[in-house]
Design a protein around this nucleic acid. Structure first.
Length: 335
DNA sequence: ATCTCCCGCCAATCA
DNA sequence: TGATTGGCGGGAGAT
C-alpha cells in the first residue's frame, strides 16, 4: 500500500529511436547525448514535498518506535530491509537508529539483516550499569579537566559514542545541562593519535564530524525519551541537553544523590533562594540566557515526569551565565 | 553566518 | 567476491 495516491502511472515505454525519430545507429557517446537531450524534454519532477524535519532521525525513530514500542510484549524479530521499506527510508538510515538502540540494549544483532527487539525492558538496569561505567571512567572529573579523557574504542563508534554521551548525563547531578561541543571534547580522545600528528584543520574536521554524530545520537535519545533539548536560550547559540530518562535510575542510586554539584555561583545559593536551576556544561557563550524546556511528548513513553526547573527571573539568568562562565574557566577550556 | 543533520559515498567486514 | 554494515564529511535547509 502506497501512502502517496497521487503517483501517476508509469509512462508508456518506447525506444529511443521512436523518441528521436531516428532509425540510424548511434554510438554510445551520441546515445548518451541523445538520452540527455530526451531527458531534458521531460518536465523535471517536482521537488520533494517532504519537509526536511519530517525526515529527521528523531521523527524516523518515533515512527520506528510506533512499529516496535519500547513497552512492547516480549522480544520480537526485526528485519531491517522490510522495516526500512515500511518506513519509506533507505536501509542506511536504519543502521543509524538500530546501532544506537542496540548500544542501549534495546535490540541485539542476531544475524544478517535481523535484530531481536527487546524494547526498553533492559533499559533501567543497563542505565545503572552505564552510570557505574561512567564513574569508573571518571567522566565527571574528565568534564572538569581533572581526569584524562577515556580512550576511544575503534569499533562500533556510534554505539560507543552513544553510550558515553549518555554516561555524561548519568554521572552528573540531575538537571545538568550538557552541550555537544563539550561532550565531544570529553569523549573524543585526540591524544591517542599523537603518533601521527594531526593538523589543526584535521582536528577541526574530526571535531565537527563527531559533533554531527552526536546530533544523530541526541535525536534518537530524544525520541526514546532519555534526553531533552533545552532550547530557546539566547546566550548559547548551540543547544544544550538535559537527561530526563527513567527517574528511578537516579533516585534509587544513593551515589547519585551524594554526588557533589560543581562549586559555582548557582550551587552556592541554597535551594530556597532559587528556583531549581541547571548546572551547565556548555561551550562558548554568546547571548542572553533564557532557558525553556519544550513540553515533552516523550515522557509517557518511559513513564517519566520532568520536574519544573525553568528560572523565571533575571537574577537566575545572570547567575546561570556566571555559573556557565565559571565552569568554563574551571575546565580550563580554551575556545 | 552559523547551526543542524540528511544523504550517500565508499571502506571495512562478513558470509 | 558480492553483500552488508557503518564511518565519515559534503553540502543544503533551518535558524
Amino acid at each position: 500500500m502506497y501512502e502517496d495516491d497521487n503517483i501517476t502511472c508509469t509512462p508508456k515505454r518506447c525506444v529511443l529511436t521512436e523518441v528521436t525519430n531516428s532509425t540510424n545507429y548511434v554510438s554510445p557517446t551520441a546515445n548518451l547525448k541523445l538520452l540527455t537531450n530526451v531527458a531534458l524534454q521531460y518536465p523535471t519532477p517536482p521537488p520533494s514535498t517532504v519537509h526536511r524535519k519530517e525526515k529527521s532521525l528523531q521523527i524516523l525513530c518515533d515512527r520506528f518506535l510506533n512499529l516496535y514500542p519500547l513497552l512492547g510484549d516480549g522480544p520480537v524479530e526485526i528485519q531491517l530491509d522490510s522495516t526500512a521499506t515500511r518506513l519509506g527510508v533507505e536501509k542506511r538510515r536504519m543502521y543509524d537508529i538500530i546501532n544506537i538502540l542496540e548500544a542501549m540494549q534495546c535490540a541485539v544483532h542476531k544475524r544478517k539483516n535481523t535484530y531481536l527487539w527487546h524494547g526498553g525492558s533492559r533499559l533501567n538496569s543497563f542505565l545503572k550499569m552505564l552510570k557505574k561505567q561512567g564513574e569508573h571512567l571518571k567522566l565527571s572529573d574528565a568534564l572538569r579537566g581533572k581526569a584524562p579523557k577515556p580512550p576511544t574504542p575503534k569499533h562500533k563508534t556510534l554505539g560507543v559514542l552513544a553510550q558515553r554521551f549518555l554516561m555524561l548525563f548519568l554521572v552528573e547531578p540531575p538537571n545538568t545541562l550538557i552541550n555537544l561541543e563539550m561532550a565531544v571534547r570529553v569523549l573524543i580522545d585526540t591524544s591517542s593519535k599523537t603518533k601521527t600528528v594531526i593538523s589543526p584543520e584535521q582536528q577541526d574536521r574530526q571535531h565537527k564530524s563527531k559533533v554531527r554524530r552526536l546530533y544523530d545520537i541526541a535525536n534518537v535519545f530524544i525520541s526514546i525519551g532519555l534526553i531533552e533539548k533545552v532550547s530557546g536560550n539566547l546566550i548559547l547559540k548551540k543547544p544544550v541537553f538535559k537527561y530526563v530518562g527513567p527517574h528511578n535510575v537516579k533516585k534509587c542510586d544513593k551515589t547519585a544523590q551524594s554526588t557533589p554539584s560543581p562549586i559555582t555561583p548557582l550551587s552556592a545559593l541554597d535551594n530556597q533562594q532559587r528556583i531549581p536551576a541547571c548546572s551547565v556544561f556548555a561551550g562558548r557563550s554568546k547571548r542572553k540566557l533564557e532557558f525553556t524546556t519544550p513540553t515533552s511528548t516523550k515522557e509517557l513513553k518511559l513513564g517519566i515526569t520532568t520536574p519544573p526547573h525553568t528560572p523565571s527571573h533575571k537574577w537566575d539568568e545572570i547567575l546561570l551565565v556566571a555559573d556557565m562562565e565559571l565552569t568554563r574557566i574551571n575546565n580550563g577550556v580554551v575556545l
